[in-house]
Design a protein around this nucleic acid. Structure first.
Lengths: 138, 138
DNA sequence: AAGATAGTTTAGAATAATTCTAAACATGTT
DNA sequence: AACATGTTTAGAATTATTCTAAACTATCTT
């Protein structure tokens, strides 16, 4: 029925490896975030998901965890919509579709977008990331 | 000394053409926005700029004007940073450098970025815009 | 030119996302 | 078990933005 021991321990190792104490709430949130495939959450959506699983965490902890995970490169923060920040469990090189109506995000593997030429970075600047966002009406 | 009659009337025509009443505060804000080359402002930065020119507008009016102008395609809204929305006077096809330290934006003409291949839009979705944001550490 | 009408502006209240505070608590260590 | 330090939490605080309702003004009508 519950094969969580295994899953949990994987998540626990990820947290330890990142130098984050595997506390009850971080484990639970990490499980939600990383237990499935790639995901895009907001603080609010993750908070609600936790609540609906009877996981008792405060919203402040959700924010803390999202930022802690982001600081350890387990998540990537994306600002697309001025309403709220998204956090993506896929930290690799890739891009996004943004569905304007629903506010949902969908990954685009980096191989699917071919940027033939990029401009030079301004003097003294190093590129830290190139984001391509395809906004779609749907 | 002040050759504003001419400039003002240009701005006034733009407002009228857009179907927006050329009120004192819209004229003043439009003058700041469109009187120079391409610009990137936030509500707060525009509000401060107006204040420093002794133009008496409320912050609510700045927000109203920015949204009105955006609705008439005189501005384009950009969400890059969760702190605040940017408004770009360049509404044509182009992209951006985002300077992470200063929070400043710089246009990249669309010719300078060559996207060789784009993925298909998801079923039933039409692309409304493709944004490329090059984040630089500087 | 005066009046009517509908769109604008405004101060300040309200809202929403996020961060802060400081006290209670849990973890890993000794 | 006791300690030191990192975490969690409720609730207050902060920040960007939107709302409200009243005062105002551009424009149209007469």
């Amino acid at each position: 029925m519950r094969q969580n021991t295994l899953v949990d321990s994987t998540v626990m190792e990820r947290l330890r490896a990142a130098g984050l104490r595997p506390t009850r709430q971080r484990l639970a949130l990490a499980q939600i975030l990383f237990g499935q495939g790639d995901r895009h959450v907001t603080a609010e959506s993750l908070f609600n998901e936790a609540k609906s699983q009877r996981i008792d965490v405060s919203l402040a902890t959700v924010y803390n965890a999202l930022h802690d995970f982001t600081g350890k490169d387990m998540l990537r923060e994306i600002s697309i919509d001025s309403n709220s920040s998204y956090f993506d469990t896929n930290t690799g090189d890739h891009h996004h579709f943004f569905f304007e109506r629903s506010g949902k995000l969908q990954d685009i593997p980096s191989e699917h977008i071919n940027i033939a030429s990029l401009p030079e970075a301004p003097a003294g600047a190093q590129i830290s990331r190139v984001d391509v966002i395809i906004r779609v009406k749907a």
